[in-house]
């Protein structure tokens, strides 16, 4: 089922769809739970699906539901969303280093889809990341998130709690599957991930999730760059091969 009408879509787009499939699967339990909680919070079906359609940010959406349930004011909910999602500024800046040069409008389009998971899949690619590829990963993940929100609203209550709990591990399994191959290749990856994991475990004791992730990621990335500056790649460096259109 290909939707290749312009040249920049096509095979890179299909590859993106394929690599985004694990995210789409991983989003099923999360989105179903979201839809179900939205229903119990008293949102209408349209409001629930609209939130997934327009916001597309798992953690922030869950937080908004609990704040709504607690009767929190609108501005506070919006501000909390901003704080929780500001980490994507860092992730977008990082992905932008490896993404191929392209029309700013096309990049502004896929920017909407840079969730933690879409970032993790696209940013761990070795070479320059194609615009069509990012769109592929984004679209399949987004479709799953939105559709399953509706499903969760309708039938979420039917899913047994025990199965929900093991399904909740799906996204962590995805992150591990993205990290493990790089761990085998480079000592540096182990240091980065381990340092950031330890820092985040500490910071999340007293900081919001969003800030804890930003701080631990930035500190680990900066200290490792300071100790072991990135060498120019021996062959096939991406910076010299970056495509321009």
């Amino acid at each position: 089922m290909k939707t290749a009408e312009t040249p920049f879509l096509g095979s890179n787009f299909s590859l993106g769809l394929r690599d985004g499939l694990p995210i789409a699967l991983g989003y099923i339990p999360a989105a179903i739970t979201f839809g179900f909680i939205a229903q119990t919070t008293g949102l209408t079906p349209v409001e629930s699906v609209m939130m997934s359609l327009l916001v597309f940010a798992g953690a922030a959406q869950f937080m908004a539901l609990s704040l709504l349930a607690a009767g929190t004011g609108s501005l506070e909910i919006i501000f909390t969303t901003f704080i929780v999602n500001i980490r994507h500024l860092l992730m977008s800046a990082s992905l932008n280093e490896n993404a191929m040069d392209d029309n700013p409008w096309k990049k502004a389009g896929y920017a909407f889809g840079i969730t933690d998971e879409v970032f993790a899949v696209t940013a761990t690619k070795e070479d320059s990341v194609h615009t069509g590829y990012i769109y592929g990963v984004f679209i399949i993940s987004y479709a799953s998130w939105v559709v399953q929100t509706g499903v969760g609203y309708a039938v979420g209550g039917l899913l047994p709690a025990t199965i929900q709990q093991s399904l909740m591990f799906a996204l962590y399994a995805l992150f591990i599957a993205l990290l493990a191959p790089a761990l085998k290749r480079q000592r540096k990856v182990l240091v980065l991930a381990a340092a950031s994991a330890v820092l985040n475990s500490l910071f999340s004791l007293f900081l919001d999730t969003g800030w804890a992730i930003i701080l631990s990621t930035t500190i680990a990335a900066t200290v490792v760059e300071w100790i072991a500056p990135a060498q120019k790649r021996p062959s096939g460096g991406t910076s010299t091969q970056r495509r321009s259109t």
Binding site: D116, L179, N200, I213
Partner: peptide, 27 residues
Amino acid sequence: PRIEGILKNVPHAALGALIFPGALLIH
């Protein structure tokens, strides 16, 4: 270049923070 080096470290550092401690706390 220094900032570029840091930004290229971000994906693997972020993965560490996205897995821990979250994965341990689902139960």
